[in-house]
């Protein structure tokens, strides 16, 4: 059997075709579309940087951009902290621990739609479960409107999203924790290290490859959040909880402004690109690969 230079490429054709047709193609098309005014049903019209100029002159877009950044800044550390805490807790060898692992993972596999609907109801200021509970013990007339008040809407979405996603990252952390050899802890115990010292000087450094992976994953997750917003607040009130991805959807498929939406998705693309680049650039400073 003689291998020629092009032989491997033959085997790569299916993958390459898929990649070019269904990934790269649309990406490039969106790039071009972002320079047009295009309502889907009529042919696109070239307007140069028009969409980008409009975006950065729009108060609404700047608010949305701000919301997106706040979302990531709060979601990423939040979900990582909660997930790590859960992972450390369920890493104990106690009876029934599998049950808790399953329990914490449950929100991850529950449909976002049901989660959105149930949480909306729980948080309802006058009809919700939370109100019913609180009003039993305290004399409150109504709860703050966690979803209907511009001050809390985004924060509430973040909290619910952390609640939903923490289980997923917990499993990843758990896998990382179980990879840390027991001998380090034994040695530390003999040296008289406290639980905190063990965590700080053994667990955290040895977990850092996992932490790095989770940081990237949760960042991307945070920028892609859509369904909860769609179901719980629809970006409202007055755009207070609108994020980039939600606005891209609204502009593309509700207002049929494909060009404008494409411009927004390129801005999102650049944001993700920059953040990922920075991550990889600085990872050597804190990530330890033990081998």
């Amino acid at each position: 059997m003689q291998y020629r230079k092009f032989t491997p490429w033959l085997f790569l054709i299916p993958t390459l075709l898929g990649l070019i047709l269904f990934r790269l193609g649309p990406m490039l098309a969106a790039g071009l579309a972002s320079f047009t005014r295009w309502s889907v049903f009529s042919p696109p019209e070239w307007i140069g940087l028009g969409n980008y100029i409009e975006l950065f002159n729009s108060d609404v877009f700047l608010l949305i951009l701000r919301n997106t950044i706040i979302f990531s800044l709060l979601f990423v550390p939040g979900v990582m902290a909660v997930a790590l805490l859960l992972a450390v807790l369920v890493n104990n060898r106690l009876k029934g621990m599998t049950f808790f692992r399953g329990l914490f993972y449950l929100p991850v596999i529950t449909s976002v739609v049901s989660i959105g609907v149930i949480w909306s109801w729980i948080l309802s200021p006058r009809f919700g479960l939370l109100y019913q509970l609180v009003s039993k013990f305290f004399n409150v007339v109504r709860l703050p409107s966690f979803l209907g008040d511009a001050r809390y809407a985004l924060l509430t979405l973040i909290v619910v999203y952390i609640w939903k996603m923490a289980g997923y990252f917990m499993i990843l952390f758990l896998a990382g924790l179980q990879n840390i050899p027991e001998i380090y802890y034994e040695a530390a115990t003999i040296d008289g290290a406290s639980i905190w010292q063990k965590f700080r000087h053994i667990t955290l450094p040895l977990l850092s490859p996992t932490t790095f992976f989770i940081l990237i994953m949760s960042l991307i997750t945070s920028l892609k959040t859509f369904e909860l917003t769609y179901i719980m607040t629809q970006g409202g009130p007055n755009y207070a909880s609108s994020t980039l991805i939600f606005s891209i959807y609204v502009n593309a498929f509700k207002h049929f402004r494909m060009g404008y939406a494409s411009a927004m998705s390129y801005i999102l693309f650049i944001m993700v690109g920059v953040v990922t680049y920075l991550n990889f650039k600085f990872k050597d400073r804190w990530v330890n690969y033990s081998e």
């Binding site: 008040d149 769609y230 409202g236 207070a240 909880s241 609108s242 509700k254």
Partner: peptide, 27 residues
């Protein structure tokens, strides 16, 4: 562009709809 400026259906939190909601909220 009615749906867009009026704030219709899925985008009820936006546009004129969202702003009028602020009246009912006393904001």
């Amino acid at each position: 562009g009615w749906g867009e400026w009026r704030g219709y259906a899925d985008t009820g939190g936006a546009g004129m709809n969202g702003v009028l909601d602020s009246i009912t909220n006393g904001e």
